[in-house]
């Protein structure tokens, strides 16, 4: 099952390797190798061999997918090692960790190396002017500065001098003239790039459509249930739509939820990480509350926080509260206490 989740992430990873080239491959290899080595080092001395369950591989894989392709090798290695040794094996290994190991490792890396964690590489065929940044980072930088008086995220990006690829302008030009101009609307520049993930960013999170493909397979096979991701993305989208424009002075209902859903690690987090059965609540009711909480946290941390795009941080915070949620939402009696409080 774990292997299947990894398989569903492969298309997105392949796209990242295609876009960012060899550095991306190196980062992925280093993070997976570090996770496997850490797993071996912490289980073999006790006579256990746990690689076959695939969880160490998946942890390393997800850590690597969230890294920028330009990160020096020590960063993914340390993040994966921290994830396995401290977050997982200290508590006794798979199924006993209360925090998602990959997210713990990523948060550790974000706290430790904010600089290397934003060493982005320009995507193949993308326009490069000045510093390479994912659109989300550029948007946050533009919104922190003065004069971001446009109404949508993409318009803010354009007016702040962020450029998209030639492919984007060609495709959008064709679509706008042939499809949308008769209807009197036109798609802003950048729509195509953001939609297909032809931008700088974490290796495995730029391509939302390919992630959705994998997620759809997981949902179809019943490996994850819809409650948590739908609640998570829905809450986030509503909050972003309603309040997201306040920061840039555009007032209510001007947040541009579409842009935010398609940038950052939101989709990967919502479908592949947050529903992790070990670290999320067990009941459907608990999952719904958990998803709403994650959506709210991600909204706040993305628009006001400084720890990456807010997804890893909110999942980790959600993990802290998940056992408490379980107590409230399930009848199951745990621990030494006689009855539910």
């Amino acid at each position: 099952m774990t292997w299947l989740v990894g398989l569903c992430l492969l298309p997105a990873a392949g796209w990242g390797v295609f876009l960012f080239g060899t550095p991306a491959l190196i980062v992925l290899a280093v993070s997976i190798a570090a996770a496997i080595l850490a797993e071996l080092a912490s289980t073999l001395p006790f006579g256990r061999f746990t690689l076959r369950d695939g969880s160490a591989f998946l942890t390393g894989f997800i850590v690597g997918l969230l890294m920028p392709a330009g990160a020096p090798a020590c960063v993914p290695a340390a993040a994966s090692a921290f994830a396995i040794l401290v977050v997982k094996q200290s508590f006794g290994g798979l199924g006993r960790n209360w925090m998602n190991p990959a997210m713990g490792g990523v948060v550790f890396a974000l706290l430790s190396w904010p600089g290397p964690m934003s060493q982005w590489i320009a995507p193949k065929g993308g326009a490069v002017q000045g510093a390479v940044m994912p659109p989300l980072e550029a948007l946050r930088a533009a919104m922190a500065g003065p004069g971001a008086k446009e109404t949508t995220p993409l318009a803010i990006l354009s007016s702040s001098g962020f450029t998209f690829s030639d492919l984007d302008s060609q495709v959008l030009g064709w679509i706008n003239t042939h499809v949308f101009s008769p209807m009197g609307i036109s798609l802003p520049p950048g729509t195509f790039d953001v939609l297909i993930g032809h931008v700088a960013g974490g290796i495995g999170i730029v391509s939302v459509p390919l992630l959705m493909l994998g997620a759809w397979f997981l949902l179809f096979r019943g490996i994850i249930r819809w409650h948590l991701p739908v609640m998570y993305l829905g809450t986030f989208a509503i909050l972003a739509a309603v309040f997201g424009g306040l920061g840039s002075g555009n007032g209510w209902f001007a947040g541009g939820p579409g842009f935010h859903l398609f940038s950052g690690s939101l989709v990967l987090g919502a479908f592949f990480v947050a529903p992790d059965p070990v670290t999320s609540p067990m009941t459907n009711k608990g999952k719904c509350i958990f998803g709403i909480g994650l959506g709210t946290l991600t909204f706040f941390l993305r628009f006001f926080g400084s720890l990456g795009d807010g997804v890893a941080a909110s999942i980790v915070l959600g993990n802290c509260a998940a056992p408490l949620l379980d107590r409230w939402t399930s009848r199951r009696v745990t621990g030494t206490q006689g009855g539910a409080a």
Partner: peptide, 15 residues
């Protein structure tokens, strides 16, 4: 040049 800054935070002390 690339220290594990997180160890210097309160959480690092607890760990």
């Amino acid at each position: 040049e690339q220290p594990l800054r997180a160890l210097g935070f309160a959480g690092g002390g607890l760990l």
